[in-house]
């Protein structure tokens, strides 16, 4: 079809030939985010609030999360309680980073979708499936603030210790 396509472009002339937009195949401009802060502050929140088999500890979900005792990457069933490996943490980091971009002055999906609509969040099917309460009931939620700080550019030292303060 290449020859036919060239003919089509020729037929349609200058307007068609010059109209293909620039930058269509550029790499993503996803924000640079700190991996250590993710591991110590965000991963514990995602593991405690999101990474359940019926939710995001599932390969069917675009935001798929690995967590101890739940979905694992290349870990046998009898070792599910072992800490997450580097590959699992990196996959979770990349998955979360993919939802970290904001469109204009909107909040990133990683913040807006799990936030209760009454607090300004968007629709989240998890709220329908698992009760009236959404993941973050307000922007004062400890977990919400940890994720928000990471998206705002917070960093942590390489020897940071994962937080346990992740529940509402």
């Amino acid at each position: 079809m290449a020859l036919v396509n060239r003919i089509v472009v020729a037929v349609l002339g200058v307007a068609a030939a010059s109209c293909t937009d620039d930058g269509l195949t550029d790499p993503s401009s996803l924000p640079e985010l700190d991996r250590d802060h993710f591991r110590c502050a965000v991963q514990p929140v995602l593991a405690a609030r999101c990474a359940f088999a019926g939710c995001h500890a599932s390969a069917r979900r675009p935001l798929r999360l690995y967590a101890v005792g739940r979905m694992r990457l290349g870990v046998p069933w009898d070792r599910l309680a072992e800490p997450l490996g580097e590959a699992e943490l990196e996959a979770n980091f990349q998955a979360a980073r993919g939802f970290a971009s904001a469109d204009g002055d909107e909040s990133p999906l990683l913040l807006s979708k799990p936030l209760d609509p009454l607090a300004g969040g968007g629709y989240h099917r998890g709220q329908d499936l698992y009760g009236d309460r959404d993941v973050f009931e307000s922007t004062d939620d400890r977990g919400y603030r940890l994720v928000a700080e990471w998206l705002a550019g917070a960093s942590a030292p390489a020897d940071c210790v994962p937080t346990t303060e992740v529940m509402p």
Binding site: P62, G98, F99
Partner: peptide
Amino acid sequence: RYVMTTGGGAGP
């Protein structure tokens, strides 16, 4: 619709 990358990333 969401797009998943082979590297484990995903996004709208």
